[in-house]
Amino acid sequence: MQYKLNLNKVSTTLDLLKRNEKGVIADFDMHKVPLKLLEMGCLPGNAVELLEVAPLGDPIYLCINDTHLSIRKELAREIQVELVG
């Protein structure tokens, strides 16, 4: 499921999003991302927004594909996103 990155868009990783920044999930290494996260809707092409960062900087609180969930930054680091807007 290699995804071609569009070089005109700003691409980053999920942990580097700022509050209220939106993006589209681009790609990730499937060995490092648990199946459960995919099953909750974290798939290439789905919209993602960072809602909150925990007071101590970790974990982060996201809305992916209409599902609200929280993951740690170490996992978010593995997920590439393209910024939107």
């Binding site: 996260l37 909750m40 609180y61 609200h68 969930l69 929280s70 740690r72 996992l75």
Partner: peptide, 11 residues
Amino acid sequence: RKSYFVIEMPN
């Protein structure tokens, strides 16, 4: 196993 943490934030 490698640690991971996923939790749903329900409404």
